[in-house]
């Protein structure tokens, strides 16, 4: 079984091809590449490198968000289009779970986060002793609000993700010794991890591809304002 994995939910670009539980190729780049220009060439490149044609793959895994709206959409659009036109099933995985999976050897709570600006984050926390069960669901949180939730758990928390550095001072201040920083080698999303997580899900039918959408974890600003207005009118 051959998988193609694509994670462009944030600034890193990660792609991989995995065959029968073996990584054939996995690439990750973190130089603020323009995903719209860069993702398809990267995919073409890895297919060439391992001499596999797109038609030979059996399934596609994509990082479904949350993260950069545009980044998530580019990955999802490419994955949907490949899935539909090649008639191969498409599996979506949380971009936060992909990051957390890098640190799954750590026994305990793993918090993965992505900077959402203005002291907000997309974040989740998982319990690795229970197969990465979510303790804090994927969501858009204020950094302080997230740390409050983690404090209440009362256990050491391992932080992973390349945006953790933006908040590390605050995290230490709030959680003290309970906060553990994952080594930077685990900070970038791995498309092989993404595939590994996708393999644990049931393969959806091809028909589900058309209705596959990103998980933004947040309403568009205009929609949020509009809903507020509607409530005001009632």
């Amino acid at each position: 079984m051959i998988w193609l994995g694509i994670d462009t939910a944030n600034s890193p670009l990660a792609v991989a091809i995995v065959k029968d539980g073996q990584i054939l190729t996995a690439e990750v780049t973190n130089i603020k590449v323009n995903h719209s220009a860069g993702v398809m060439p990267a995919i073409e490149h890895i297919f060439k490198k391992v001499s596999i044609s797109p038609k030979e793959i059996d399934a596609i895994a994509v990082s479904q968000g949350p993260g950069s709206y545009t980044g998530v959409r580019i990955g999802v659009t490419i994955a949907k289009t490949l899935s539909w036109t090649l008639q191969k099933p498409l599996v979506g995985v949380s971009s936060l779970q992909v990051l957390a999976a890098n640190a799954a050897m750590f026994q305990g709570i793993i918090c993965s986060l992505i900077d959402a600006r203005r002291q907000n984050v997309y974040a989740a926390a998982y319990d690795s002793t229970m197969g990465l069960a979510p303790i804090v669901e994927d969501g858009h949180y204020s950094m302080l609000g997230l740390l409050e939730q983690l404090k209440e758990i009362g256990k050491p928390v391992l932080f992973v993700g390349h945006d953790v550095d933006n908040f590390w001072g605050l995290i230490q201040q709030e959680l003290g010794n309970s906060a553990i920083r994952a080594p930077y080698a685990l900070d970038l999303p791995s498309a092989a991890q993404l595939i590994h997580l996708a393999e644990q899900q049931e393969l959806p039918s091809i028909d589900a591809t058309h209705t596959f959408v990103p998980k933004y974890c947040r309403l568009a600003e205009a929609e949020a304002n509009w809903l507020k207005e509607q409530k005001g009118k009632q």
């Binding site: 719209s36 709206y69 959409r73 490419i78 289009t81």
Partner: peptide, 18 residues
């Protein structure tokens, strides 16, 4: 730009796959 990107990336993926 965000709207253009969807058609473009779908077109690129479709062209590549076929």
């Amino acid at each position: 730009v965000g709207a253009l990107l969807i058609g473009i990336n779908a077109a690129k993926a479709f062209a590549f796959a076929n």
